[in-house]
Design a protein around this nucleic acid. Structure first.
Length: 304
DNA sequence: CATATGTCCTGAGAGC
DNA sequence: TGCTCTCAGGACATAT
């Protein structure tokens, strides 16, 4: 389940295509049922083929591939531009890939010939193809203009909150602190903070010694500080290990390697095993229809 | 407005 | 052994 660290690893792994020119966009026929691609594939082809990859970027749990007309162009400035100015800039497009549960963005051959969803090839040769492979097919691929992208992902009513790796401690507390939800559930809200998913939410709460069912409103200032520090520490460590490949083996890096962070999990998928900190027994509970793992002994802070 | 629930999807694993 | 059933959880639509 690609979360921030896995998606960041994918982005880093596909950097070799920066500066390359898109030669073709193909949607392999072998997919049992096509995944959601917007707009139509022929429209994507028309807008991308011949353009150059100017930048690779991660936005929350999405991979963003920027295309522009000229090889040397960088992605669009983040500052707001008037529509008149935008009209004079070279046309820029953002291909946004959402892996969701089982999607992989790869520069090497995919795990199976089945479940191939999209293939981009680049020049000049030799240049590896970029694949989007997705076993369950819940992932999506969407092509946005620069303006559409800004509105959806960076605007004041963006569908995403600030990125989990760059949010400040104050901003973090402001965005979650008034919620009546359990902290574990609130951490999964991408509109509050973007990038944390089900696996890392449990890991972060364990490092911060906070009970997953603690109500956000009842957490004290010191708990928020610990939680913010744990957020950054866990995500950065997971990136260093190139993400977590779980027992189903689905997640692979862009170069088809296993991640390594699963060997360092504090609680996730470790129910019944001893806590690495206090030797207490890790428990599994269900919150908002999702598994949560925690240590009842060392995560006592403010249960609901 | 905030929060909760239902939906999509496939393959692994359980249980009979 | 081979069938059926349940479950895993991303984001978003719809309900409360």
């Amino acid at each position: 389940m690609p979360e921030l660290p896995e998606v960041e690893t994918m982005c880093r792994g596909i950097r070799p295509i920066v500066g390359r020119r898109a030669l073709s966009v193909q949607r392999p026929k072998c997919a049992r049922r096509p995944i959601a691609i917007m707009p139509r594939i022929d429209c994507i082809r028309r807008r991308i083929e011949g353009k150059y990859v100017s930048q690779i970027e991660r936005v929350g749990k999405r991979v963003v591939i920027w295309f522009s007309d000229a090889g040397s162009e960088k992605g669009p400035s983040r500052t707001k531009a008037t529509s008149a100015v935008v009209a004079r800039l070279p046309q820029v497009e953002a291909l946004v890939i959402e892996p969701r549960m089982t999607g992989l963005v790869l520069l090497s051959s995919p795990p199976t010939r089945e479940h191939l969803r999209l293939r981009l090839s680049f020049g000049p040769k030799p240049s590896p193809d970029l694949w989007f492979w997705d076993r369950r097919g819940l992932g999506t691929v969407t092509l946005y203009t620069a303006g559409e992208f800004e509105a959806k992902f960076r605007g004041c009513d963006s569908s995403l909150g600030p990125d989990a790796l760059s949010v400040s401690a104050e901003q973090f507390r402001e965005r979650l602190g008034r919620s009546r939800r359990a902290i574990k559930v609130a951490l999964l809200d991408q509109k509050a903070v973007a990038g944390v998913g089900n696996l890392y939410a449990s890991e972060i709460l364990h490092l911060a010694s906070i009970h997953p069912a603690a109500c956000c409103q009842r957490l004290r200032k010191h708990a928020w500080q610990r939680l913010h520090a744990a957020l950054i520490e866990v995500l950065q460590a997971a990136i260093q290990y190139e993400g977590s490949t779980l027992s189903d083996g689905t997640y692979r890096t862009a170069l088809n390697q296993n991640g390594g962070y699963q060997n360092h999990h504090r609680v996730y998928d470790r129910a019944g095993q001893p806590c690495r900190r206090c030797a207490g027994q890790i428990r599994r509970i269900v919150q908002a229809q999702r598994s949560t793992f925690f240590c009842p002994n060392c995560q006592r802070c403010a249960p609901a």
